[in-house]
Amino acid sequence: MRRILAVTTFTFRELLRSRLLFVWLISVIVLCGLDFLLSILSFGSILQIFMDLGLAGMEISGLLVLLLGLAVTYTTEMDQKAIFLHLAKPLTRGEYLLGRILGFFLVNCLVVLGMGLVVVGLVIFLGGGTVPALFYDCVVFILLEMFVLTTLGLTYQMIATSMVGVVLYTFFTVFLGHCIGEVQWLLNQEMSHWIKVLLRMVYYILPNLEAFNLKDRLYDPNLVLGWAQWQDILLYAFSYSFVVFLIGWINLEKREFR
């Protein structure tokens, strides 16, 4: 446990010092500017717009930090072989991977929650309103999504053979993970049996990111979010992450470091 924590702090510090928080700063500036502009331009439910923009901004800045972090660390750890030093130490490869995932996630939390604070501030002070309770649920959902994606990204880092590969795989997983509803729709259409089997595999392998997309359903009158749903979503986030982590670990265990 202490060793995992050591890797986590090491990764966290590395990412922070790689100036990744600039992403946060830029996102905050863009968001404040947009909100200010909109408060002049638009009328009608301005608070709703502030909140929706803020939530989207939180997710996008989290994703950006993840992608940039993956790119930066791939260069040092894999291309320049800094990973040798970790793996030769009394540290199992699973501990190494988990520590890195947690370090990345910590940075992500910092960025997402930091943005969240700014959004709440904007709603209260620029918009003069209050934040509904569902907003906080949304934030937790975004964090869960980030956790799943962080696990995936770092697992890709253990499998892929180039930095571009890691970034592209992660990016496309985000994109396709949100398309999963469309895949389900496609499955209900008439088409060849084999394509259906293929689609079904894609459907089950990809993370169901739409499940974490509470921000698009913030005002949905049909939304039910009780303890049962929370249980499902938490269990899903962690079971998916765990499978991915296991795959990453096994790959790391088998990987050769030439």
């Binding site: 699973g94 389900q184 089950y204 749903q229 079971s239 998916y240 765990f242 296991l246 096994i250």
Partner: peptide
Amino acid sequence: VTKGAALIPVLFVLQAYLSTRLHEWVHP
């Protein structure tokens, strides 16, 4: 852990089941 790979299909089925269930929740 390399032997534990046998666990992956089981977990996979679990997460696939949850994913379908959540799909119904997202798109009632």
